[in-house]
Each structure stands twice: as structure tokens, then as C-alpha cells.
Nucleic acid binder design. Sequence first.
DNA 1: TTTGTAAATAGGAATAGTTCCTATCTAAGA
DNA 2: TCTTAGATAGGAACTATTCCTATTTACAAA
Lengths: 152, 152
Amino acid sequence: MNIAEKEVRRRMEHFQKALHQKGIKVTHQRMEIYREVARSSDHPNVEVIFRRVRERVPTISLDTVYRTMWTFVDMGLVQILGSSKERVRFDGNNEPHHHFVCTVCGAAADFTDMKFDALPVPKKVRSMGKVISTHVEFRGLCKKCKQKKASD
Amino acid sequence: MNIAEKEVRRRMEHFQKALHQKGIKVTHQRMEIYREVARSSDHPNVEVIFRRVRERVPTISLDTVYRTMWTFVDMGLVQILGSSKERVRFDGNNEPHHHFVCTVCGAAADFTDMKFDALPVPKKVRSMGKVISTHVEFRGLCKKCKQKKASD
DNA sequence: TTTGTAAATAGGAATAGTTCCTATCTAAGA
DNA sequence: TCTTAGATAGGAACTATTCCTATTTACAAA
């Protein structure tokens, strides 16, 4: 389940550089939290990260893990699996379709494009399990947020 | 922001048939909740659905909306935007990559495939905003869940 | 149409995930 | 070494979601 030592080291170096570059303090907690995420390939949630890091940093608080993870997300050092930290949202469209999602305001729009409904499934993926559906998500800036950004 | 009348009617009919078929009672609440989701294209969350439906069914409870929406999801009548109702999960892989997600246990695995990193963006999507990244998600049954299902 | 009953709902209580508050601590520049 | 802006710990507060249960209702059968 773990990433190769060498790759972890590469990520840690990149991490430290990134913090320095943005003038964000390199604390013991941030180091250990990032190390944990960098070495895990199982997409842990905050609770799991907290438990794992606590073995090495017994006084770490849950709040620190939350704060730190959002800092990392803002910096682009880690990504969120799925879309966002928003609450669950529903989609009454029961035809196959795909999404454009604005990473700023969270707006989501459907679109259909048969070319994307059945992309060729790579061998690697077939070895992971049985694919039932395919979803393409384009992420970016919606019109409104683009305008708003331009007028700042 | 709303779906055409005709399409809504089509969805409502399909909805009633689906409930009858599965022997699930067609209640006033379920009708109005589904109608709301079927006519909205803005991917509302539970709170929003609750507020909108309450204008027509003032005594509806939040719990009913939650229960009902999960029923619809289980029946395949509506989909969840993004992956699942799980809490936020993180991904320390900072190279472009894509995911295979098991819809039963939630396990997620990364894979890289440059062919998917820059799929042609349809015109329709370009009109929605500026695309910054592309994410392909294959959903299905992971090996473990497939085996478990086979042995039932 | 009336009746019986399993299933569904309303409303509030309980839980769980996340964020906030603030006293204390620390990284890092002077 | 000293200074201080920024970070952390720990618990309280908040918010989304689920649970509990008395009451109501859909619908099948009489």
C-alpha cells in the first residue's frame, strides 16, 4: 500500500521547497503530516492521517491535521479525492453524462458526449476490478468566477 | 436553470414505474422530492431540496429528504455528484493521474495514462468556462468486492 | 368501500465530522 | 540570543446527518 522510499523522498524535498517559497513555516507537525500523505497510496481521510501521525507525534491535535491538510490543498501539494469538501449533492439526470466543475464556486454543469461514455479501459485498470461506468470531469473556472477574477 | 417540462414528465413517469416495479410505496413526499430533483439542473444538496419542497409540502421533514434521497440513489434514480457520501479523502500524488473507484467499498486506486490527461474539450464545455484539468474516473467493483459478491 | 398492516413520515434527540476559540509555544529572521 | 508573527493543543461550538419512536398512510385484500 506504500509509495517507494525514493519517491517519498522526492516529494518531501519538493514539499520543503514549496513551503519556503511561500513563506510558510516548516513545522514538525507539517512535516510529519505531509510525510504520511506522501507515503500512503490508499487515499486516507483526516481521521486516518491523524491516527497514523499520532504514533510519531503523540500530542498532535485533530484540528492541526484539518488545518494543515487544507493548507496543503490550497498550495496544490495534495488533492482531494472526488470533488470537494462540500456536502453531498445530487443529480437527477439518469442518462450517462459528464461534468464541468468550477473549482472556485463549486458550480457543476452536466454535458453529454458519447465519446466519453466508453473510453478504452487501460489494462492496469482492468486488473483493479470490473469497470461499470466512466465519468469525465473537467475542472476549471466557470464564466462568472473568471469574470470576477479578471475584475480584481 | 430548469429542465424542460416534457423531460420532467418523462422522468416522473419513469420514476413511478420504477417504484411500482420494486414495490416501494408512491408517497406524496417521494413524488414531490423526486419532482424537485428531476426539474433542477443545479445539482442541489439536501438542504436546498428540503427548502424547495417545503414550499409545496410544508410539513416535510429534513430526515425524510435524506432517507428518500438515499432510497433514490440505491434505486439508481439519481446520482451523487462527485464520488460518494464519505468524508473527504486526500491524495498525495501530485502528478496528473486518474482513479478507479469501487462503488461498494469506496476503495480508490490511482493510475496514470497520458491519453486521459488532455482529452479534447467539447465546444459545449468550453462555453461553460476555462478548463484547467481533466479527471477520468472509472467506477465499478474492485477485486475484493467482486469475489465477495460471487461467493454470496 | 372499508379494513388491516407493513412501510413511511415528522419531529426531536443523538451522533459524527469539522471548525472555532484562545492560551501557549515555536520557527526563523534580526 | 531575542523577538514576534504565525502555528499548535485541547476543548468548546457548530453543522450535517442519522437515529428513535409515536403517528400516519399506501395499498392489498375482503
